[in-house]
Simulated assay, not measured.
Amino acid sequence: MNNRNRLIQLIHVGKRELGLDDETYRAMLQEVASKVSCSKMSIKELELVVAHMEAKGFKRQAKVGKTGFKRRLSPRSGKAKHAEIDKIRAIWITMYQHGIVQDRSEAALDAYVRRMTNKDIDHVGWMDSHQAYAVLESLKKWHTRALREWMVENGHEKLLQIRAAKSYASVLICYEEVTNKK
């Protein structure tokens, strides 16, 4: 569907969502674009009509289906076959909250697991304990490195030195102290 047809369709959805009768709808088109039919409008005029309808309360809804997808989020902890897998998911979500990864979804984590296991494993939940341990340790190293870099960039290197923060847990504690003070 081209952009013009998509805009026309969107306008008709907006008409229905706003509860406009035909007379009110045509008056609105005349007011905004000086035309009473979408078929006679340019793309720019159609965009103006959509913007006007959004200003009146129409909200576009994202497509879910062929072109869109719904991100799969991690399941609740305690459901994994190995404790390491729950820890991997928890660290992944924490890294998202710290701004280190951009996508907290299970699909993004699966992509990381694929890279770390040389495409042997397609899903985090399918790892055996040895694979899970290796992925967990690599994730902890990445998280530690990113937090240390952030702290150095923001002038908190002294705290890392004072606390002798080298382990994952100690660096995480230092980071939490610094960010909770702000």
Rank of each mutant, 00 (worst) to 15 (best):
Arg114Gly: 06
Cys174Gly: 04
Glu84Thr: 04
Lys158Cys: 02
Arg16His: 01
His123Ala: 11
Phe69Asp: 03
Lys141His: 10
Met28Tyr: 10
Ala55His: 08
Val64Met: 09
Leu48Gly: 11
Asp22Val: 10
Ser77Leu: 08
Glu137Lys: 15
Ser37Leu: 05
Tyr175Arg: 08
Lys158Phe: 11
Ser74Asp: 11
Met116Asn: 00
Gly99Tyr: 02
Val64Gln: 10
Leu147Cys: 06
Tyr133Arg: 12
Pro75Tyr: 06
Val171Trp: 04
Ala90Trp: 09
Ile121Gln: 03
Lys119Cys: 00
Arg4Ser: 06
Ser167Ile: 08
Cys174Ala: 15
Tyr175Ile: 00
Ala108Pro: 03
Thr117His: 03
Asn118Glu: 14
Lys87Trp: 13
Lys66Ala: 14
Ala108Tyr: 03
Gln131Phe: 08
Val124His: 00
Asp103His: 02
Ile88Glu: 02
Gly155Thr: 01
Ile121Lys: 03
Val152Glu: 07
Leu139Phe: 02
His156Cys: 08
Lys66Asp: 10
Ser77Glu: 12
Glu153Pro: 06
Val178Leu: 06
Gly68Pro: 05
Asp103Gly: 04
Lys158Gln: 13
Leu136Thr: 05
Val101Ile: 12
Arg145Gln: 15
Lys59Trp: 07
Leu160Arg: 02
Leu20Ala: 01
Pro75Ser: 06
Leu136Trp: 02
Glu153Arg: 07
Asn180Pro: 04
Ile121His: 07
Tyr133Ile: 04
Arg104Ile: 02
Glu149Thr: 06
Ala62Met: 11
Met127Leu: 07
Gln161Lys: 15
Lys182Met: 15
Lys44Met: 12
Asp128Leu: 06
Ser39Arg: 14
Ala165Cys: 06
Phe69Cys: 08
Met53Ser: 07
Arg76Gly: 14
Arg60Gly: 04
Ala164Met: 13
Ser170Phe: 08
Ala165Val: 03
Asp120Leu: 13
Thr24Ser: 09
Arg104Leu: 09
Ile91Val: 15
Arg60Thr: 12
Met116Glu: 13
Ala83Gly: 12
Met127Arg: 01
Glu84Met: 08
Val32Lys: 05
Gln161Asn: 11
